[in-house]
Design a binder for these strands. Structure first.
Lengths: 167, 167
DNA sequence: CTGAGTTAGTTGATGTTTCAAGTCAGACCG
DNA sequence: CGGTCTGACTTGAAACATCAACTAACTCAG
């Protein structure tokens, strides 16, 4: 708070449009969902495959890329994480023998991560259970219409969060 | 994710219903949303008020409780976190002078956390910006119908995640 | 009233994420 | 060419979360 000049509470409150009961209820639900669903997915992956969701995304991102390889910043974007976080995680995955890194030949600044045979087996083993869980928790709870709605709602919010992601 | 059939660990793989393109697209969008929206909210709170989202929820949960106090496990549920996590966080909030803890008089096992005057000012200062951000990113991007849809979708998924939460 | 069992919360070790700083390669400008 | 600038990472320290072990308070059966 310290950076800003704040008016006393009442004055600030006067300008704020608080959430009405419907809005609040919807937000509380959605907000709880945003905390619990990732936790549930993480739990399932950890239990069944010994992977965090982030690690799974990294391996999945590599396994579906051409040649099983991808540059770090690309992967970081795919897995929705910072480059620094990815770097640490890939180091651990490398220690477990599932990924290898080497500098790109075209541009020495770029690091290319490549999935190994063992890493590929790991994703192939993890994917069925994971997809089944995603179906169970999300996809199959919704009607086709709801899925379309969710897709659209998601796009709208993402556009607002990060304007200029589709230009 | 290519579903090649393999020998040992995958009697499951043959039976898995992979996501069709529409399902996959919807899931990817929703999934990105679940990672980016919390991060965006965290960022806004951190920048404007020096609080993590979890800390904000703790203070907000106290400030709206009768007497500004609430027992730990109750608060933990409200903020969607483990008791252990809450305990560490409340310790830090206590060091910052925003919360106080004391054992309950009725039952000595119970710890009651109470918000201080300074803590209350902190939430009051943080809330307007936070609500405005929630509006900007979520509520005001959606039509009334979409908000209702999102509410319903959220409820359905939460029910599946944690059956028996409304019994 | 005593001791096994349960509940509520805390703590310290461990692991993960973030943040700020650092390295190294290529691009650009004169 | 040489120097500065930017881009793509990596690293180590600090902040934070999670996990397992622990303590203290209550409950209740005998």
């Amino acid at each position: 708070m310290s950076g800003q000049s704040r008016e006393p509470a009442e004055e600030a409150a006067a300008e704020v449009r608080w959430l009405d009961p419907d809005e609040l209820a919807a937000w509380m639900t959605f907000s709880a969902l945003m905390f619990k669903l990732p936790a549930a997915l993480d739990f399932q992956l950890q239990r069944d495959s010994g992977l965090s969701h982030f690690e799974y995304l990294v391996l999945a991102g590599l396994s579906e890329a051409p040649g099983g390889m991808r540059r770090m910043s690309d992967l970081a974007g795919f897995a929705n994480g910072s480059l620094s976080r990815l770097s640490h995680v890939v180091k651990r995955l490398e220690e477990r023998g599932w990924v290898q890194r080497r500098p790109s030949e075209e541009d020495g600044r770029i690091t290319v991560a490549a999935i190994t045979e063992a890493g590929f087996e790991q994703v192939v083993a993890a994917a069925p259970n994971h997809v089944t869980t995603v179906r169970e928790y999300v996809i199959d709870t919704l009607t086709t219409a709801q899925l379309r709605q969710l897709h659209e709602i998601g796009e709208q919010i993402l556009d607002r969060l990060d304007p200029g992601r589709s230009c």
